[in-house]
Lab assay of single mutants.
Amino acid sequence: SLEGTEKASWLGEQPQFWSKTQVLDWISYQVEKNKYDASAIDFSRCDMDGATLCNCALEELRLVFGPLGDQLHAQLRDLTSS
């Protein structure tokens, strides 16, 4: 749920159509929501749009996002199937 936050830029759009900015917004949101240590994320490797993100295998997401990769992968699957 997104109570208390302004409507996120990526909400209501299919992930494969996200811009690079929307991807970063979504990642930041997941980091906050999961109380994850953002210093463990290599943000220089997050410079990708939604289509690229959706094409990432779980292993790739783990490389870039560490333990949060599993969470991101699961969330993406939910978003693309809805």
Rank of each mutant, 00 (worst) to 15 (best):
S1G: 04
S1L: 05
S1V: 07
L2Q: 14
L2F: 10
L2W: 04
L2D: 02
E3K: 15
E3L: 04
G4C: 14
G4T: 12
G4D: 15
G4I: 13
G4H: 07
G4N: 02
T5C: 03
T5I: 14
E6L: 11
E6F: 09
E6T: 11
E6K: 07
E6C: 09
E6H: 05
E6I: 10
K7N: 14
K7I: 04
K7E: 08
K7S: 15
K7L: 14
A8H: 08
A8S: 14
A8Q: 08
A8C: 15
A8E: 10
S9L: 07
S9T: 13
S9D: 09
S9F: 06
W10I: 14
W10G: 08
W10Y: 04
W10D: 01
L11A: 10
L11Q: 13
L11G: 10
L11I: 12
G12M: 09
G12C: 02
G12K: 14
G12D: 12
G12P: 08
G12Q: 04
G12I: 09
G12N: 15
E13A: 07
E13Y: 06
E13N: 05
E13T: 14
E13G: 09
Q14W: 08
Q14C: 14
Q14N: 11
Q14I: 07
P15W: 00
P15G: 00
P15S: 02
Q16F: 05
Q16I: 14
Q16N: 05
F17I: 11
F17Y: 13
F17C: 06
S19Y: 02
S19C: 14
S19R: 04
S19V: 04
S19M: 02
K20Q: 07
K20F: 02
K20P: 12
K20A: 13
T21S: 15
T21A: 08
T21E: 11
T21I: 08
Q22Y: 01
Q22V: 06
V23P: 00
V23E: 01
V23N: 02
V23C: 03
V23T: 11
L24V: 14
L24G: 11
L24W: 03
L24C: 11
L24S: 11
D25Q: 11
D25H: 15
D25S: 09
D25P: 00
D25F: 02
D25Y: 02
W26L: 01
W26T: 00
W26E: 00
I27W: 01
I27L: 14
S28E: 13
S28W: 08
S28A: 11
S28P: 00
S28D: 13
S28L: 13
S28I: 08
Y29A: 10
Y29L: 04
Y29C: 04
Y29S: 07
Y29I: 05
Y29N: 15
Q30L: 05
Q30V: 11
Q30K: 03
Q30E: 02
Q30W: 03
V31H: 02
V31G: 05
V31T: 05
V31A: 05
V31I: 14
V31P: 00
E32Q: 11
E32N: 15
E32R: 09
E32I: 14
E32P: 02
E32V: 06
E32W: 09
E32A: 13
K33S: 09
K33C: 10
K33A: 09
K33G: 07
N34G: 07
N34E: 08
N34F: 13
N34H: 14
N34R: 08
N34P: 01
K35M: 04
K35G: 15
K35S: 15
Y36Q: 10
Y36C: 10
Y36V: 13
Y36W: 13
Y36T: 15
Y36S: 07
Y36M: 12
D37V: 06
D37Q: 08
D37S: 11
D37M: 13
A38R: 10
A38L: 05
A38Q: 06
S39I: 10
S39Y: 06
S39P: 07
S39N: 15
S39G: 13
S39M: 05
A40W: 11
A40Q: 13
A40P: 09
A40Y: 15
A40H: 10
A40T: 05
I41A: 05
I41R: 04
I41G: 04
D42V: 02
D42S: 06
D42H: 03
F43C: 13
F43K: 12
F43I: 06
F43A: 09
F43R: 12
F43E: 07
F43N: 15
F43S: 06
S44I: 14
S44T: 11
S44H: 06
S44E: 14
R45P: 05
R45Q: 14
R45L: 11
R45F: 08
C46A: 12
C46V: 14
C46I: 14
C46G: 10
D47Q: 08
D47G: 08
D47L: 10
D47K: 09
M48T: 02
M48F: 15
M48W: 11
M48K: 02
M48E: 00
M48R: 01
M48H: 01
M48D: 01
M48Y: 10
D49L: 03
D49M: 01
D49W: 01
G50D: 00
G50M: 01
G50W: 00
G50K: 01
G50F: 01
G50E: 00
G50P: 00
A51E: 13
T52C: 08
T52E: 10
T52Y: 07
T52I: 02
T52F: 03
L53H: 01
L53G: 01
L53V: 03
L53E: 00
C54H: 03
C54V: 12
C54E: 03
C54L: 13
C54G: 04
C54W: 10
N55I: 03
N55W: 03
C56L: 12
C56D: 01
C56T: 11
A57C: 08
A57E: 15
A57P: 15
A57D: 04
A57V: 08
L58E: 03
L58C: 14
L58M: 13
L58P: 13
E59L: 06
E59V: 04
E59G: 10
E59M: 08
E59D: 04
E59C: 05
E60D: 04
E60Y: 13
E60R: 07
E60S: 05
L61H: 02
L61Q: 01
L61C: 03
L61V: 03
L61K: 02
L61T: 02
L61F: 15
R62H: 08
R62P: 00
R62T: 04
R62I: 02
R62C: 07
L63A: 10
L63R: 13
L63F: 07
V64K: 15
F65G: 01
F65R: 00
F65I: 06
F65C: 07
F65T: 02
F65W: 03
G66P: 02
G66R: 01
G66W: 02
G66L: 00
P67M: 09
P67T: 08
P67L: 07
P67V: 11
L68H: 01
L68F: 13
L68P: 02
G69P: 00
G69F: 02
G69N: 01
G69A: 09
G69H: 01
D70L: 07
D70F: 06
D70N: 11
Q71M: 08
Q71C: 15
Q71L: 12
Q71S: 14
Q71R: 13
L72N: 00
L72K: 01
L72F: 05
H73D: 12
H73P: 02
H73T: 02
H73E: 06
H73V: 07
H73G: 06
H73W: 06
A74L: 14
A74H: 07
A74K: 14
A74I: 01
A74R: 13
A74G: 14
A74P: 06
Q75P: 02
Q75R: 10
Q75W: 13
Q75A: 15
L76S: 00
R77M: 14
R77G: 11
R77S: 13
R77V: 06
D78R: 10
D78W: 09
D78M: 05
D78V: 11
D78T: 13
L79V: 09
L79R: 14
L79G: 11
L79E: 11
L79H: 05
L79F: 13
T80C: 14
T80G: 04
T80M: 09
T80I: 03
T80D: 01
S81Q: 08
S81V: 13
S82T: 11
S82K: 05
S82P: 13
S82I: 10
S82D: 01
